[in-house]
């Protein structure tokens, strides 16, 4: 294979192997003192038993570290904005796609409702079983991708998706501000969350509500990204 220039490959490989050795030795040495280290996760699981939901990872992502999730949604929004800005015109790109055959069209028409139903289920039951907003949103976006590649004149309705995404983003911040107003800290849990409800669908206060909002936003953003990457105009 052609190497691009005279980079010292042996230097880099020696560096990498010695880093590997150092990391291994450090990890094995750390294992011997693991009983003396008190991890933050144990305390958090104790707090979660008082005011959390059955899925500890969901309550960490949405409630205990909810501000980080807001930042992650902002990063996704900026990436979708950057991809959308590069499409120079909004002409429909029917000449980009070829007419696909009958098997693909029939199968995708059959499969799309089940994929959407599964995505909505994963989104709504995110606080009781593994799953949540991110996974459910991306599942719905992959169903939309399946429809986009089988039908030539299918387009995601632009105004509806933009409205959904905007409403979801605004309501996340509004719920946080409502928690600030009622309970004196951002994203405070102001809906009733009894510990006796743990395991029920309506439990944990605002946690399932926020995860559904996150799922709607991620799903609509991924659909727009996928459509922008398929339909790009050739002329400038």
């Amino acid at each position: 294979m052609n190497f691009k220039r005279d980079i010292p490959v042996r230097t880099y490989s020696g560096f990498a192997l010695s880093a590997l050795l150092v990391l291994t030795i450090l990890t094995i040495l750390l294992q011997s003192s693991v009983e003396k280290i008190e991890r933050a996760g144990d305390k958090l699981l104790g707090i979660n038993a008082q005011e959390g939901v059955a899925n500890a990872v969901t309550s960490v992502v949405v409630y205990f570290r909810g501000f980080d999730t807001l930042g992650e949604i902002a990063v996704l929004f900026i990436a979708a904005l950057g991809i959308g800005l590069m499409v120079s015109s909004h002409k429909s790109a029917q000449r980009h796609k070829e007419e696909s055959n009958f098997i693909l069209q029939t199968a995708s028409k059959l499969l799309f409702p089940f994929i959407t139903l599964f995505g909505v289920y994963v989104m709504i039951y995110g606080h009781l079983s593994p799953g949540g907003g991110f996974q459910g949103g991306v599942i719905i976006a992959s169903g939309v991708l399946l429809l986009l590649i089988s039908y030539q004149n299918f387009e995601v309705p632009h105004a509806l998706i933009t409205a959904l995404e905007t409403l979801a983003g605004i309501s996340y911040v509004l719920i946080g501000l409502l928690g600030l107003w009622i309970l004196d800290h951002f994203l405070g849990n102001f809906l009733p969350s009894d510990i006796s409800d743990m395991g029920m669908l309506i439990s944990g206060g605002i946690i399932p509500l926020i995860y559904i909002i996150v799922g709607v936003k991620v799903g609509s953003e991924m659909s727009m990204i996928v459509q922008n990457l398929i339909q790009r105009s050739d002329d400038e």
């Binding site: 899925n55 969901t58 994963v122 593994p130 991110f134 996974q135 991306v138 996928v226 398929i230």
Partner: peptide, 22 residues
């Protein structure tokens, strides 16, 4: 299990399909 589901949907799903479309 949460991380496994996310990695399955995103890395082996959407990310590779975006590469193929590009």
């Amino acid at each position: 299990p949460d991380v496994a589901m996310t990695e399955a949907v995103i890395s082996a799903g959407i990310s590779s399909l975006i590469f193929l479309m590009a």
